[in-house]
Each structure stands twice: as C-alpha cells, then as structure tokens.
C-alpha cells in the first residue's frame, strides 16, 4: 500500500503554494536546522578538532568506556522496568474507572514537570544518610544513594511518563470489543492480551519504549545528585562529559557527547523506520 502511495505522490503535479505558505515552510526548516543541526555540527567539529586519532583515543579510555557501559545498562534496565509498569499503569488508567483515577493520571506527568535535580534530591531525602527509608535498605544490605540502585531509581522516575502517554491513547482507541471477542472465542485473559491487545498497541508501545530509552541515555540532573560521580564506578557518560569539561578535556567531552547523540538518534531513526514500514 505504501508503495502505491509513493508512486502516486511522485506522479502528481507540483503542488502550488502561496507565498505565505512558502515563507512559513522556509522558517520552519531553518529554525529546526539551526536548533538541531547546529549543536550536532559543533559536537562533530569539537571532537575532531585534534584529529581522528585523538577522538578514538578519548572514547576508548577506561573511564569513557565504563561510563558508556553504565549508561547503556541503566537505560536498558529503566526501559525494561518502565515498559512493564508503564503498560500496567496505562491499562489501569484506561480500563478501570476507579476513584482518584484523575489524580493518578495527573501524577503520571509529574516527572515532566519536576526538574530532575529535584527528583534526585528527593531520593537523597529518602535513601541518603539518615533518610526515611535508609534503615530499611541498610538492613537489607543494599546501598541506594551514590550507587547504581539509586541511579536506576532516578532514571526510572525521570522516564516514567513516556510509555504510559504513548500507550494510553492507543488503548483507548482500540476499545474492548476485540478483547471481548477473544474471550467469547475461548481465549484466556493472557491469550487475549498476547494475541489481540498487544499486537494492536505495538506501535504506540514501541514508540514509548524508544523515547524512554533515548531519554534515559541523556539523563544528567538527577544522576548528578544521586550518583556522587565516582569515576569508573557511578559515572555515566553524561557525568563523564560534565567532568571532562570541568577538566578542560574538550575532545573527550565532545567525543562522548557525539557517541551518545549517535546512540539516541539511531534509536529514534530505527523507530521511524519501523513506523514507515507498517
């Protein structure tokens, strides 16, 4: 179907546009290019300013690699957690009309509204020295703040809304008729979800998942507060960039930034690729 659409758009005569329209399109393109491409070019420029060898050297230092590994692991774990719980929350918000539903619905957007730094501070208040829940975590032998669990918590908090907000409208749109049909055909709730509901919401879900992952890769503020930034241990790529800038190691900063940006872009472009194929 998409093929025939392409063919017809290629064959169609040039669209006539008014001058105002042309100006508007031009403005939009220039604005987007300046805002998005500018920094990207600067990053490329900065990381290659001392040659390709310096670029390779800086991104293969022990600190840079451990930071990148930690970043990817955190992002992957946070994405997995938010996919499962995000689906559950979206499901409950759409399907169950319970009291306080609107409050929960509003709370979901909290991570968008609250600065990540504040989110990090809240975690310290809860799990830091003398924190409200510290005695519990201590007795379990888990160190939360200035360690990976706290960083994971921070990342999960910051990226919570994406899956929920992408899945909810799709769930609402498909309604319950298909599921009900599956039930009457003998499918259990799990079978109905797996064979009927999940395939119907898969694009929304995939979109939410990729946004979550991309956002998790770039998280900085909350992590700065909860990680303690111990290099080689709790330092993620964004923190590494921050420290490198502080150390006036500009090539390392730009090079890592470029790698991170490349990762995020690839996720989003992969997403667009899948979207265009459906």
């Amino acid at each position: 179907m998409s093929k025939s659409e392409k063919a017809s758009s290629a064959a169609s005569p040039r669209v006539r546009r008014s001058r105002g329209e042309r100006v508007l399109i031009g403005a939009a393109v220039v604005y987007a290019a300046a805002l998005l491409l500018g920094p990207l070019i600067a990053a490329v420029w900065g990381s290659l300013s001392e040659g390709l060898a310096a670029f390779v050297r800086e991104i293969t230092t022990r600190d840079a690699i451990t930071a990148l590994r930690l970043t990817v692991i955190l992002a992957a774990a946070a994405t997995a957690i938010n996919t499962v719980f995000g689906l559950c929350i979206a499901w409950v918000l759409v399907r169950d009309k319970f009291q306080g539903r609107r409050i929960v619905n509003g709370l979901v957007d909290l991570p968008f509204a609250v600065s990540p730094v504040i989110a990090g501070l809240m975690l310290i208040l809860l799990f830091g020295r003398g924190g409200w829940l510290t005695s519990i975590t201590d007795s379990m032998g888990v160190k939360v703040v200035f360690a990976t669990p706290g960083m994971l918590l921070a990342t999960v908090f910051v990226t919570l809304p994406f899956v929920i907000r992408e899945v909810m409208p799709v769930l609402e749109q498909i309604g319950t008729a298909q599921e009900s049909a599956a039930y009457t055909l003998g499918a259990s709730s799990w079978q109905a979800f797996w064979h009927v509901t999940l395939p119907s919401i898969r694009w929304g879900l995939l979109y939410g998942v990729s946004l979550t992952f991309a956002r998790a890769l770039g998280e900085f503020g909350a992590l700065l507060v909860v990680s303690g930034g111990i290099s080689g241990l709790t330092e993620t790529s964004t923190l590494f960039i921050f420290r490198s800038l502080d150390d006036r190691n500009y090539v390392a900063a730009y090079a890592t930034a470029l790698v991170l940006a490349f990762l995020s872009f690839s996720v989003l472009i992969l997403m667009e690729f899948f979207k265009s194929r459906r």
Binding site: Q178, A181, A182, T184, S188, H195
Partner: peptide, 18 residues
Amino acid sequence: PQRRGTGFVFQNYSIFRH
C-alpha cells in the same frame, strides 16, 4: 465467557485487524 460456548458477533471493530 470462555466456558460458555457462545459465539458473539459485535456491531463494530471486533475483528482482529492485525
């Protein structure tokens, strides 16, 4: 519903579109 053995035809959108 799974154990009642009834066939149900809905008004709309109940066919599995994928």
